[in-house]
C-alpha cells in the first residue's frame, strides 16, 4: 500500500499531475473576496476564518475527480481490484495521497492568506489547527463522492452536488474553531466535534467508497 501512496504522490507532482492547481485556486478565491465585499479591514477580519475555510473547501473539491478517474480510465483500477490490496485500503491510500498533495499545501498556505484578510492574531494557530483536523475529512468524503461518480461521463458536476452537502458538518465545526479562536473564545467543543467527524469519516467511509468502486467496476 505504501507503494501505491508513493506512486500517487509521484504522479501528482510530475508534469500534468495537477499539483499546485488547488493552491493557485485557493489564492485566487481569497484575492477575489476583497473585490467582492470591499477592502475594509474590520469586515475582512471578521469574515476571514469563514472565507479561508470555504476557499480551502472549494480548492479541495477541484481535484477530487482525479482521485479515481484517471486510474479508472487507464485500467489501473481493474488491476488494483484484482491485486492483493483490499479495496478499502486503495481508497484510504488514495484519499491520503489527495490530502498530502492538496489538503496539506492548503493548510500551509492558509496563514499567509490570513494575513491578506487581516485575520486577528490569536486566530492563526486555531485556523491552522482546524484545517489540519478538518481537511482529511474533506479528502475522505471527497474520495467517497469520487468513488460514486467514477464511471460517469459527466461525473464532475454531479460529484460537487453530492459532496458539498456532505461537507456541511465539517465546514461548520471547522469555521467555528477558527472564528472562536480568532475572537479569543473557548474552542474545545467545536474542536472535539471536528476531530470526531474526521475520525469517523476516515474510519467508516473507506468501506462505503470501496463498495461504490466495486459496483462501478463490474
Amino acid at each position: 500500500m505504501i507503494r501505491l501512496l508513493i506512486r500517487d504522490l509521484a504522479l501528482a507532482v510530475r508534469a500534468g499531475g495537477g499539483f499546485g492547481l488547488g493552491l493557485a485556486f485557493f489564492l485566487i478565491v481569497i484575492v477575489l473576496v476583497p473585490f467582492g465585499v470591499g477592502p475594509e479591514t474590520v469586515l475582512l477580519a471578521r469574515i476571514a476564518p469563514g472565507i479561508l475555510w470555504i476557499g480551502a473547501l472549494l480548492a479541495c473539491l477541484l481535484s477530487l475527480d482525479r482521485i479515481f478517474q484517471l486510474d479508472f480510465e487507464d485500467g489501473s483500477l481493474d488491476l488494483l481490484a484484482t491485486a492483493p490490496i483490499p479495496m478499502e485500503g486503495v481508497v484510504a491510500v488514495k484519499a491520503l495521497a489527495h490530502w498530502l498533495t492538496t489538503g496539506l499545501p492548503l493548510v500551509m498556505a492558509a496563514p499567509f492568506l490570513g494575513v491578506m484578510l487581516n485575520l486577528p492574531g490569536p486566530g492563526y494557530a486555531w485556523l491552522v489547527l482546524s484545517l489540519v483536523l478538518g481537511t482529511p475529512a474533506l479528502s475522505m468524503i471527497g474520495a467517497f463522492g469520487a468513488a460514486l461518480t467514477v464511471g460517469l461521463k459527466r461525473g464532475g458536476l454531479l460529484l460537487s452536488l453530492l459532496v458539498l452537502p456532505l461537507y456541511v458538518p465539517t465546514l461548520i465545526y471547522g469555521t467555528e474553531v477558527a472564528r472562536r479562536g480568532a475572537e479569543g473564545l473557548a474552542v474545545a467543543t467545536p474542536l472535539a466535534l471536528l476531530a470526531g467527524i474526521t475520525l469517523a469519516a476516515v474510519a467508516l467511509l473507506p468501506f462505503a467508497a470501496a463498495a461504490a468502486l466495486r459496483v462501478n467496476l463490474r
Binding site: R7, A10, L79
Partner: peptide, 28 residues
Amino acid sequence: IAYAAHADGVKAVLTVAENLRFWAGVYG
C-alpha cells in the same frame, strides 16, 4: 489470478521500470 485487459494501467509520466516496480511492490 492475474488479470490483464485492453487497458494496460500504464502511467504515462512514470518510466517503464517505475511502472513495473510499482506493480512488483504491490504484489510483494
